[in-house]
Design a protein around this nucleic acid. Structure first.
Length: 472
RNA sequence: GGUGGAAUGGCCGAGAGGCGAGGCAAGGGACUGCAAAUCCCUCUACACGGGUUCAAAUCCCGUUUCCACCUCCA
Protein backbone atom coordinates (compact mmCIF):
# COMPACT_ATOMS: atom_id res chain seq x y z
CA UNK A 1 0.00 0.00 0.00
CA UNK A 2 1.27 3.41 -0.88
CA UNK A 3 0.80 6.40 1.35
CA UNK A 4 -2.78 7.50 1.97
CA UNK A 5 -3.62 10.74 3.74
CA UNK A 6 -6.77 12.20 5.19
CA UNK A 7 -7.59 15.29 3.18
CA UNK A 8 -9.78 17.72 5.07
CA UNK A 9 -10.95 19.28 1.84
CA UNK A 10 -12.31 15.95 0.60
CA UNK A 11 -13.32 14.70 4.00
CA UNK A 12 -11.71 11.39 3.43
CA UNK A 13 -8.55 9.38 3.15
CA UNK A 14 -7.12 9.06 -0.33
CA UNK A 15 -3.93 7.98 -2.02
CA UNK A 16 -1.18 10.54 -1.96
CA UNK A 17 -0.05 11.36 -5.47
CA UNK A 18 2.45 14.22 -5.67
CA UNK A 19 2.35 16.69 -8.53
CA UNK A 20 5.88 15.77 -9.51
CA UNK A 21 6.72 12.09 -9.08
CA UNK A 22 9.25 11.58 -6.34
CA UNK A 23 8.96 15.09 -4.97
CA UNK A 24 6.76 16.58 -2.29
CA UNK A 25 6.13 20.25 -1.65
CA UNK A 26 4.63 21.00 1.73
CA UNK A 27 3.63 24.16 3.54
CA UNK A 28 2.92 24.13 7.26
CA UNK A 29 1.49 27.02 9.23
CA UNK A 30 4.05 27.73 11.90
CA UNK A 31 3.86 30.04 14.83
CA UNK A 32 2.54 33.49 15.30
CA UNK A 33 5.35 34.56 17.57
CA UNK A 34 3.43 36.30 20.28
CA UNK A 35 4.12 34.14 23.34
CA UNK A 36 5.99 31.15 24.67
CA UNK A 37 5.38 27.88 22.87
CA UNK A 38 3.30 25.30 24.70
CA UNK A 39 2.94 21.60 24.15
CA UNK A 40 0.07 22.10 21.73
CA UNK A 41 2.13 24.29 19.42
CA UNK A 42 4.82 21.69 19.38
CA UNK A 43 2.42 18.96 18.45
CA UNK A 44 1.88 20.58 15.08
CA UNK A 45 5.61 20.91 14.62
CA UNK A 46 6.21 17.30 15.55
CA UNK A 47 3.33 15.88 13.51
CA UNK A 48 4.50 17.45 10.27
CA UNK A 49 8.08 16.60 11.10
CA UNK A 50 7.03 12.95 11.25
CA UNK A 51 5.16 13.27 7.96
CA UNK A 52 8.23 14.83 6.42
CA UNK A 53 10.47 12.06 7.79
CA UNK A 54 8.12 9.38 6.54
CA UNK A 55 8.07 10.94 3.08
CA UNK A 56 11.87 11.03 3.09
CA UNK A 57 11.99 7.43 4.28
CA UNK A 58 9.59 6.55 1.46
CA UNK A 59 12.04 7.97 -1.04
CA UNK A 60 10.54 11.38 -1.74
CA UNK A 61 12.50 14.57 -2.04
CA UNK A 62 10.77 16.93 0.40
CA UNK A 63 10.59 20.70 0.32
CA UNK A 64 9.08 21.91 3.58
CA UNK A 65 8.12 25.51 4.23
CA UNK A 66 7.10 26.45 7.75
CA UNK A 67 6.35 30.11 8.15
CA UNK A 68 6.80 32.49 11.04
CA UNK A 69 4.11 35.12 11.35
CA UNK A 70 6.00 37.99 12.89
CA UNK A 71 3.52 40.81 12.42
CA UNK A 72 0.00 40.60 13.73
CA UNK A 73 -2.47 42.37 16.03
CA UNK A 74 -1.54 40.18 18.97
CA UNK A 75 2.13 40.88 18.58
CA UNK A 76 1.42 44.61 18.60
CA UNK A 77 -0.70 44.17 21.71
CA UNK A 78 2.04 42.16 23.35
CA UNK A 79 4.59 44.83 22.50
CA UNK A 80 2.45 47.38 24.33
CA UNK A 81 2.24 45.06 27.34
CA UNK A 82 5.93 44.33 27.45
CA UNK A 83 6.91 47.89 26.65
CA UNK A 84 9.30 47.08 23.85
CA UNK A 85 9.17 47.26 20.07
CA UNK A 86 7.00 44.73 18.22
CA UNK A 87 10.02 43.41 16.35
CA UNK A 88 11.81 42.71 19.62
CA UNK A 89 8.78 40.77 20.83
CA UNK A 90 8.57 38.79 17.61
CA UNK A 91 12.27 37.98 17.60
CA UNK A 92 12.20 36.95 21.24
CA UNK A 93 9.37 34.46 20.84
CA UNK A 94 10.65 33.22 17.53
CA UNK A 95 13.82 32.17 19.32
CA UNK A 96 11.73 30.50 22.00
CA UNK A 97 9.92 28.49 19.34
CA UNK A 98 13.17 27.54 17.65
CA UNK A 99 14.57 26.36 20.97
CA UNK A 100 11.44 24.31 21.63
CA UNK A 101 11.46 22.71 18.16
CA UNK A 102 15.08 21.91 18.74
CA UNK A 103 14.46 20.42 22.16
CA UNK A 104 11.97 18.02 20.60
CA UNK A 105 14.21 17.07 17.71
CA UNK A 106 12.07 18.69 15.02
CA UNK A 107 14.16 18.83 11.86
CA UNK A 108 14.55 22.32 10.47
CA UNK A 109 12.29 22.98 7.50
CA UNK A 110 13.80 23.74 4.13
CA UNK A 111 13.00 27.36 4.80
CA UNK A 112 11.31 29.26 7.58
CA UNK A 113 10.10 32.47 5.96
CA UNK A 114 8.89 35.45 7.94
CA UNK A 115 5.81 37.39 6.96
CA UNK A 116 7.55 40.74 7.18
CA UNK A 117 10.09 39.63 4.61
CA UNK A 118 7.43 38.99 1.99
CA UNK A 119 5.43 42.19 1.76
CA UNK A 120 6.40 42.49 -1.90
CA UNK A 121 4.78 39.15 -2.65
CA UNK A 122 1.70 40.17 -0.66
CA UNK A 123 1.33 43.40 -2.59
CA UNK A 124 1.57 41.46 -5.84
CA UNK A 125 -1.10 39.03 -4.71
CA UNK A 126 -3.41 41.86 -3.64
CA UNK A 127 -2.95 43.53 -6.99
CA UNK A 128 -3.89 40.30 -8.75
CA UNK A 129 -6.96 39.95 -6.52
CA UNK A 130 -8.06 43.52 -7.17
CA UNK A 131 -7.49 43.12 -10.90
CA UNK A 132 -9.57 39.96 -10.88
CA UNK A 133 -12.38 41.73 -9.05
CA UNK A 134 -12.06 39.72 -5.85
CA UNK A 135 -10.68 42.43 -3.60
CA UNK A 136 -11.14 46.15 -3.08
CA UNK A 137 -9.30 48.96 -1.33
CA UNK A 138 -11.06 51.33 1.05
CA UNK A 139 -9.28 54.12 2.91
CA UNK A 140 -5.96 52.29 3.02
CA UNK A 141 -7.46 48.89 3.89
CA UNK A 142 -7.77 46.11 1.36
CA UNK A 143 -10.53 43.54 1.73
CA UNK A 144 -11.31 40.24 0.11
CA UNK A 145 -14.76 40.24 -1.44
CA UNK A 146 -16.29 37.03 -0.11
CA UNK A 147 -19.41 37.33 -2.23
CA UNK A 148 -17.29 37.31 -5.38
CA UNK A 149 -15.97 33.86 -4.60
CA UNK A 150 -18.63 31.16 -4.73
CA UNK A 151 -16.35 28.46 -3.40
CA UNK A 152 -16.00 30.26 -0.06
CA UNK A 153 -16.65 27.94 2.88
CA UNK A 154 -15.95 24.73 1.00
CA UNK A 155 -12.98 23.60 3.09
CA UNK A 156 -14.64 23.98 6.44
CA UNK A 157 -18.09 23.00 5.27
CA UNK A 158 -19.53 26.35 6.23
CA UNK A 159 -22.30 27.79 4.14
CA UNK A 160 -21.49 31.43 3.48
CA UNK A 161 -24.88 32.51 4.82
CA UNK A 162 -24.24 31.01 8.21
CA UNK A 163 -20.77 32.40 8.63
CA UNK A 164 -20.52 35.05 11.26
CA UNK A 165 -18.89 38.39 10.47
CA UNK A 166 -15.11 38.36 10.35
CA UNK A 167 -13.13 39.42 13.37
CA UNK A 168 -12.24 42.88 12.24
CA UNK A 169 -15.80 44.03 12.47
CA UNK A 170 -14.68 47.42 13.69
CA UNK A 171 -14.02 48.04 10.05
CA UNK A 172 -17.54 46.97 9.27
CA UNK A 173 -18.52 50.29 7.81
CA UNK A 174 -15.89 50.05 5.12
CA UNK A 175 -16.72 46.54 4.06
CA UNK A 176 -19.12 45.55 1.34
CA UNK A 177 -20.07 42.48 3.32
CA UNK A 178 -19.47 41.80 7.00
CA UNK A 179 -17.80 38.49 6.16
CA UNK A 180 -15.16 40.15 4.00
CA UNK A 181 -11.79 39.83 5.63
CA UNK A 182 -8.84 42.18 5.65
CA UNK A 183 -5.96 41.42 3.34
CA UNK A 184 -4.23 44.59 4.39
CA UNK A 185 -4.80 47.01 7.24
CA UNK A 186 -4.02 50.68 6.86
CA UNK A 187 -1.74 51.67 9.69
CA UNK A 188 -2.74 53.86 12.57
CA UNK A 189 -0.23 56.33 14.00
CA UNK A 190 2.57 54.54 15.82
CA UNK A 191 1.93 51.22 14.13
CA UNK A 192 4.42 49.55 11.83
CA UNK A 193 3.74 50.18 8.18
CA UNK A 194 4.94 49.18 4.75
CA UNK A 195 4.20 51.17 1.63
CA UNK A 196 1.67 49.88 -0.89
CA UNK A 197 -0.20 51.38 -3.83
CA UNK A 198 -3.21 51.74 -1.50
CA UNK A 199 -1.36 53.44 1.30
CA UNK A 200 0.96 52.46 4.12
CA UNK A 201 -0.15 49.60 6.33
CA UNK A 202 0.46 46.08 7.52
CA UNK A 203 -0.60 42.58 6.46
CA UNK A 204 -3.86 40.99 7.49
CA UNK A 205 -3.50 37.62 9.08
CA UNK A 206 -4.16 35.31 6.15
CA UNK A 207 -2.39 36.94 3.28
CA UNK A 208 1.14 35.99 4.21
CA UNK A 209 0.57 32.25 3.93
CA UNK A 210 -0.86 32.45 0.42
CA UNK A 211 1.96 34.76 -0.64
CA UNK A 212 4.77 32.75 0.90
CA UNK A 213 3.49 29.30 -0.07
CA UNK A 214 3.18 30.42 -3.66
CA UNK A 215 6.53 32.15 -3.59
CA UNK A 216 8.45 29.09 -2.47
CA UNK A 217 6.37 26.20 -3.72
CA UNK A 218 4.65 27.60 -6.78
CA UNK A 219 1.02 28.29 -7.62
CA UNK A 220 0.14 24.66 -6.99
CA UNK A 221 1.79 22.43 -4.43
CA UNK A 222 1.15 19.16 -2.65
CA UNK A 223 0.39 19.45 1.05
CA UNK A 224 -0.75 22.21 3.36
CA UNK A 225 -0.78 21.47 7.06
CA UNK A 226 -1.68 23.11 10.31
CA UNK A 227 -3.75 22.84 13.45
CA UNK A 228 -7.40 21.92 13.31
CA UNK A 229 -8.49 25.39 14.35
CA UNK A 230 -6.84 26.94 11.34
CA UNK A 231 -9.32 25.27 9.05
CA UNK A 232 -11.59 28.23 9.54
CA UNK A 233 -11.08 30.99 8.94
CA UNK A 234 -7.35 30.92 8.21
CA UNK A 235 -7.12 28.15 5.64
CA UNK A 236 -10.50 28.96 4.17
CA UNK A 237 -9.21 32.45 3.53
CA UNK A 238 -5.93 31.23 2.11
CA UNK A 239 -7.87 29.13 -0.37
CA UNK A 240 -10.05 32.09 -1.24
CA UNK A 241 -7.04 34.34 -1.84
CA UNK A 242 -5.24 31.84 -4.00
CA UNK A 243 -8.05 30.12 -5.88
CA UNK A 244 -9.66 33.47 -6.68
CA UNK A 245 -6.63 34.40 -8.77
CA UNK A 246 -6.56 31.02 -10.41
CA UNK A 247 -3.76 29.39 -8.40
CA UNK A 248 -4.23 25.70 -7.78
CA UNK A 249 -2.76 26.00 -4.29
CA UNK A 250 -2.64 22.98 -1.97
CA UNK A 251 -3.73 19.55 -3.23
CA UNK A 252 -4.04 17.97 0.23
CA UNK A 253 -5.13 19.68 3.45
CA UNK A 254 -3.95 18.08 6.66
CA UNK A 255 -4.99 19.16 10.12
CA UNK A 256 -3.67 17.91 13.42
CA UNK A 257 -5.92 17.68 16.48
CA UNK A 258 -5.47 19.41 19.78
CA UNK A 259 -3.61 18.85 22.94
CA UNK A 260 -6.24 19.46 25.56
CA UNK A 261 -6.04 19.68 29.27
CA UNK A 262 -8.79 18.42 31.53
CA UNK A 263 -10.98 18.49 28.47
CA UNK A 264 -10.18 22.07 27.72
CA UNK A 265 -8.36 23.29 24.72
CA UNK A 266 -4.85 24.32 25.47
CA UNK A 267 -5.04 27.82 24.16
CA UNK A 268 -2.98 30.72 25.17
CA UNK A 269 -6.10 32.62 26.09
CA UNK A 270 -6.69 30.15 28.91
CA UNK A 271 -3.30 31.17 30.22
CA UNK A 272 -2.25 27.71 31.30
CA UNK A 273 1.29 26.82 32.18
CA UNK A 274 2.04 23.96 29.81
CA UNK A 275 4.84 25.86 28.17
CA UNK A 276 7.44 23.59 26.69
CA UNK A 277 10.34 24.84 28.74
CA UNK A 278 8.40 24.05 31.94
CA UNK A 279 7.38 20.58 30.82
CA UNK A 280 10.97 19.82 29.88
CA UNK A 281 11.95 20.24 33.49
CA UNK A 282 9.82 17.21 34.28
CA UNK A 283 10.55 14.97 31.32
CA UNK A 284 13.24 14.57 28.72
CA UNK A 285 12.65 16.02 25.28
CA UNK A 286 12.74 12.62 23.62
CA UNK A 287 10.04 11.37 25.99
CA UNK A 288 7.84 14.40 25.41
CA UNK A 289 8.25 13.83 21.70
CA UNK A 290 7.32 10.16 22.08
CA UNK A 291 4.21 11.23 23.96
CA UNK A 292 3.14 13.51 21.15
CA UNK A 293 4.15 11.17 18.38
CA UNK A 294 2.60 7.94 19.61
CA UNK A 295 -0.96 9.24 19.36
CA UNK A 296 -2.72 9.51 16.04
CA UNK A 297 -2.32 13.04 14.72
CA UNK A 298 -6.05 13.46 14.23
CA UNK A 299 -6.91 12.36 17.77
CA UNK A 300 -7.01 14.68 20.71
CA UNK A 301 -4.37 14.23 23.36
CA UNK A 302 -5.51 14.91 26.85
CA UNK A 303 -2.43 16.26 28.50
CA UNK A 304 -1.69 15.22 32.05
CA UNK A 305 1.39 14.54 34.06
CA UNK A 306 0.28 10.96 34.69
CA UNK A 307 -0.18 10.26 31.00
CA UNK A 308 3.16 11.89 30.31
CA UNK A 309 4.98 9.78 32.90
CA UNK A 310 3.29 6.60 31.72
CA UNK A 311 4.24 7.33 28.16
CA UNK A 312 7.80 8.03 29.27
CA UNK A 313 7.96 4.63 30.95
CA UNK A 314 6.73 2.91 27.80
CA UNK A 315 9.40 4.66 25.79
CA UNK A 316 12.13 3.70 28.23
CA UNK A 317 11.36 0.03 27.62
CA UNK A 318 12.13 0.59 23.96
CA UNK A 319 15.12 2.77 24.68
CA UNK A 320 16.54 0.19 27.09
CA UNK A 321 16.35 -2.42 24.42
CA UNK A 322 18.18 -0.22 21.93
CA UNK A 323 20.91 0.58 24.42
CA UNK A 324 21.34 -2.98 25.67
CA UNK A 325 21.28 -4.51 22.21
CA UNK A 326 23.82 -1.96 21.02
CA UNK A 327 26.07 -2.77 23.95
CA UNK A 328 25.93 -6.37 22.81
CA UNK A 329 26.10 -5.95 19.05
CA UNK A 330 27.93 -2.69 18.60
CA UNK A 331 26.55 0.09 16.43
CA UNK A 332 24.35 -0.95 13.53
CA UNK A 333 23.18 0.90 10.46
CA UNK A 334 19.38 1.22 10.69
CA UNK A 335 19.13 1.36 6.93
CA UNK A 336 21.02 -1.88 6.46
CA UNK A 337 17.78 -3.68 7.19
CA UNK A 338 14.46 -3.61 5.34
CA UNK A 339 11.74 -1.41 6.78
CA UNK A 340 9.44 -3.31 9.12
CA UNK A 341 6.39 -4.16 7.02
CA UNK A 342 3.82 -3.69 9.78
CA UNK A 343 5.27 -0.33 10.65
CA UNK A 344 5.21 0.80 7.03
CA UNK A 345 1.66 -0.40 6.57
CA UNK A 346 0.57 1.58 9.61
CA UNK A 347 2.37 4.75 8.56
CA UNK A 348 1.07 4.55 5.01
CA UNK A 349 -2.44 4.48 6.40
CA UNK A 350 -2.68 8.18 7.19
CA UNK A 351 0.29 8.05 9.56
CA UNK A 352 -1.25 5.45 11.86
CA UNK A 353 1.18 6.04 14.67
CA UNK A 354 -0.57 3.83 17.26
CA UNK A 355 -0.38 0.76 15.05
CA UNK A 356 3.16 1.73 14.09
CA UNK A 357 4.08 1.96 17.75
CA UNK A 358 2.53 -1.45 18.36
CA UNK A 359 4.79 -2.84 15.62
CA UNK A 360 7.80 -1.36 17.42
CA UNK A 361 6.73 -2.91 20.71
CA UNK A 362 6.47 -6.28 19.06
CA UNK A 363 9.94 -5.95 17.60
CA UNK A 364 11.27 -4.98 21.01
CA UNK A 365 9.69 -8.00 22.64
CA UNK A 366 11.30 -10.20 20.02
CA UNK A 367 14.61 -8.43 20.57
CA UNK A 368 14.42 -8.71 24.34
CA UNK A 369 13.80 -12.42 24.02
CA UNK A 370 16.86 -12.80 21.83
CA UNK A 371 18.81 -10.71 24.29
CA UNK A 372 17.72 -12.91 27.17
CA UNK A 373 18.72 -16.05 25.32
CA UNK A 374 22.11 -14.50 24.84
CA UNK A 375 23.48 -17.11 22.50
CA UNK A 376 25.87 -16.19 19.73
CA UNK A 377 23.79 -18.18 17.26
CA UNK A 378 21.09 -15.54 17.00
CA UNK A 379 23.43 -12.57 16.79
CA UNK A 380 22.49 -11.86 13.20
CA UNK A 381 18.80 -11.94 14.05
CA UNK A 382 19.32 -9.62 16.99
CA UNK A 383 21.32 -7.26 14.84
CA UNK A 384 18.46 -7.19 12.35
CA UNK A 385 15.86 -6.51 15.02
CA UNK A 386 17.94 -3.74 16.53
CA UNK A 387 18.42 -2.08 13.16
CA UNK A 388 14.74 -2.44 12.40
CA UNK A 389 13.68 -0.90 15.71
CA UNK A 390 16.03 2.01 15.18
CA UNK A 391 14.84 2.54 11.64
CA UNK A 392 11.24 2.77 12.86
CA UNK A 393 12.18 5.02 15.75
CA UNK A 394 14.07 7.22 13.33
CA UNK A 395 10.93 7.86 11.32
CA UNK A 396 9.23 9.06 14.47
CA UNK A 397 12.30 11.09 15.35
CA UNK A 398 13.01 9.23 18.57
CA UNK A 399 15.96 6.95 17.83
CA UNK A 400 18.02 7.53 20.98
CA UNK A 401 21.23 6.81 19.10
CA UNK A 402 20.49 9.20 16.24
CA UNK A 403 20.80 12.96 16.23
CA UNK A 404 20.02 15.08 18.09
CA UNK A 405 19.60 12.69 20.97
CA UNK A 406 22.89 10.82 20.54
CA UNK A 407 24.95 13.97 20.94
CA UNK A 408 22.94 15.15 23.90
CA UNK A 409 23.25 11.77 25.52
CA UNK A 410 26.97 11.65 25.08
CA UNK A 411 27.36 15.25 26.10
CA UNK A 412 28.52 13.97 29.47
CA UNK A 413 30.71 11.24 28.06
CA UNK A 414 33.75 12.25 30.05
CA UNK A 415 31.82 12.03 33.27
CA UNK A 416 30.16 8.84 32.23
CA UNK A 417 33.50 7.18 31.57
CA UNK A 418 34.85 8.32 34.88
CA UNK A 419 31.79 7.02 36.69
CA UNK A 420 31.95 3.79 34.72
CA UNK A 421 35.46 3.07 35.95
CA UNK A 422 34.36 3.53 39.54
CA UNK A 423 31.15 1.56 39.14
CA UNK A 424 32.91 -1.29 37.34
CA UNK A 425 35.21 -1.69 40.28
CA UNK A 426 32.21 -1.83 42.61
CA UNK A 427 30.50 -4.34 40.35
CA UNK A 428 33.64 -6.46 40.28
CA UNK A 429 33.75 -6.47 44.06
CA UNK A 430 30.09 -7.41 44.20
CA UNK A 431 30.65 -10.30 41.80
CA UNK A 432 33.44 -11.58 43.98
CA UNK A 433 31.20 -11.34 47.03
CA UNK A 434 28.47 -13.21 45.19
CA UNK A 435 30.86 -15.98 44.16
CA UNK A 436 31.90 -16.25 47.77
CA UNK A 437 28.20 -16.38 48.74
CA UNK A 438 28.74 -13.29 50.83
CA UNK A 439 25.35 -11.87 49.91
CA UNK A 440 25.28 -9.32 52.68
CA UNK A 441 28.35 -7.70 51.21
CA UNK A 442 26.99 -8.00 47.65
CA UNK A 443 23.72 -6.36 48.62
CA UNK A 444 25.51 -3.63 50.52
CA UNK A 445 27.34 -2.71 47.34
CA UNK A 446 24.12 -2.78 45.37
CA UNK A 447 22.47 -0.53 47.93
CA UNK A 448 25.36 1.86 47.93
CA UNK A 449 25.11 2.24 44.16
CA UNK A 450 21.33 2.54 44.33
CA UNK A 451 21.78 5.30 46.84
CA UNK A 452 23.94 7.09 44.30
CA UNK A 453 21.16 6.70 41.74
CA UNK A 454 22.71 3.79 39.90
CA UNK A 455 20.69 0.65 39.21
CA UNK A 456 22.31 -2.72 38.56
CA UNK A 457 20.95 -5.14 35.99
CA UNK A 458 22.28 -8.69 36.03
CA UNK A 459 22.30 -10.04 32.51
CA UNK A 460 23.53 -13.19 30.87
CA UNK A 461 26.74 -11.30 30.10
CA UNK A 462 27.19 -10.16 33.67
CA UNK A 463 26.12 -7.00 35.41
CA UNK A 464 25.56 -3.65 33.73
CA UNK A 465 24.57 -0.35 35.26
CA UNK A 466 22.19 2.45 34.33
CA UNK A 467 21.24 5.70 35.93
CA UNK A 468 18.08 5.01 37.90
CA UNK A 469 16.47 8.14 36.47
CA UNK A 470 16.64 6.64 33.01
CA UNK A 471 15.40 3.26 34.10
CA UNK A 472 12.73 4.20 36.58
C1' G B 1 -28.70 28.22 15.63
C1' G B 2 -25.00 26.07 11.72
C1' U B 3 -20.75 22.49 10.73
C1' G B 4 -17.76 18.48 12.19
C1' G B 5 -15.89 14.90 15.71
C1' A B 6 -16.03 11.48 19.95
C1' A B 7 -18.08 7.69 23.67
C1' U B 8 -13.83 0.89 23.95
C1' G B 9 -11.47 -3.40 29.68
C1' G B 10 -8.63 -0.64 36.34
C1' C B 11 -6.07 3.28 33.13
C1' C B 12 -3.97 5.07 28.26
C1' G B 13 -5.16 3.96 23.44
C1' A B 14 -6.05 1.46 18.22
C1' G B 15 -9.46 -0.98 15.01
C1' A B 16 -14.13 -0.38 11.80
C1' G B 17 -19.10 -6.46 9.57
C1' G B 18 -16.73 -12.74 11.30
C1' C B 19 -10.56 -14.53 13.90
C1' G B 20 -11.24 -9.33 20.58
C1' A B 21 -3.88 -4.02 18.27
C1' G B 22 -0.34 -2.28 21.61
C1' G B 23 1.17 -0.17 26.21
C1' C B 24 0.66 0.79 31.57
C1' A B 25 -1.21 -1.20 36.14
C1' A B 26 -2.66 -5.85 38.78
C1' G B 27 -2.17 -11.28 39.74
C1' G B 28 0.50 -15.91 38.64
C1' G B 29 4.90 -18.33 36.58
C1' A B 30 10.16 -18.59 34.60
C1' C B 31 15.02 -16.52 35.55
C1' U B 32 17.84 -14.75 40.21
C1' G B 33 21.28 -16.20 46.35
C1' C B 34 17.31 -12.36 46.88
C1' A B 35 16.05 -8.47 43.83
C1' A B 36 15.99 -5.48 39.47
C1' A B 37 15.75 -6.02 34.25
C1' U B 38 13.67 -9.54 30.77
C1' C B 39 10.29 -13.36 28.98
C1' C B 40 5.57 -16.33 29.39
C1' C B 41 0.48 -16.64 31.18
C1' U B 42 -4.14 -14.43 33.26
C1' C B 43 -8.00 -10.66 33.85
C1' U B 44 -11.12 -8.94 28.28
C1' A B 45 -14.24 -4.05 26.63
C1' C B 46 -16.75 -1.57 22.85
C1' A B 47 -22.54 4.93 26.00
C1' C B 48 -27.99 3.53 25.70
C1' G B 49 -32.52 1.69 22.89
C1' G B 50 -34.18 -0.36 18.48
C1' G B 51 -33.08 -2.40 13.52
C1' U B 52 -30.31 -4.77 9.12
C1' U B 53 -27.38 -9.43 8.71
C1' C B 54 -25.99 -16.31 9.03
C1' A B 55 -22.68 -12.78 11.78
C1' A B 56 -22.24 -5.73 14.45
C1' A B 57 -17.74 -2.62 18.80
C1' U B 58 -17.83 -2.01 13.40
C1' C B 59 -23.71 -0.65 9.05
C1' C B 60 -28.83 1.99 9.69
C1' C B 61 -32.47 4.82 12.87
C1' G B 62 -33.25 7.13 17.45
C1' U B 63 -31.49 8.74 22.47
C1' U B 64 -27.94 10.51 26.02
C1' U B 65 -23.30 12.65 27.22
C1' C B 66 -18.83 15.12 25.85
C1' C B 67 -15.72 18.03 22.56
C1' A B 68 -14.19 21.27 18.66
C1' C B 69 -15.06 25.05 14.87
C1' C B 70 -18.45 29.08 13.22
C1' U B 71 -14.36 35.04 17.36
C1' C B 72 -7.63 35.13 18.51
C1' C B 73 -5.50 30.10 18.70
C1' A B 74 -1.17 24.58 16.60
Amino acid sequence: MALHLYDTARRGTRAFVPLIPGEVSMYVCGATVQGLPHVGHLRAGVVFDVLSRWLLESGFKVTLVRNVTDIDDKILARAMEEGRPWWAVAAHYERAFSAAYDALGVLPPTIEPRATGHVTQMVELMQRLIDAGHAYAVDGDVYFDVRSFSEYGALSGQRPDSIEPAADSDFASRKRDPRDFALWKGSKPGEPAWPTPWGAGRPGWHLECSAMATNYLGATFDIHGGGLDLQFPHHENEIAQSHAVGDGFAQYWLHNAWVTQAGEKMSKSLGNTMVVQEVLKRIRGIELRWYLVSAHYRSNIEFSDEALQESGAAFRRIENFVVRATERMGDVDPHATPMCADFALAMDDDLGAPAAVAAIHELVTEGNTLLAQGSAANAATLRGVLASVRRCLGVLGVDPLAEPWATRHSGGDDYREAVDVLVQSELHERQEARSAKDFARADAIRNKLAHAGIAIEDTAEGPRWVLAREAE
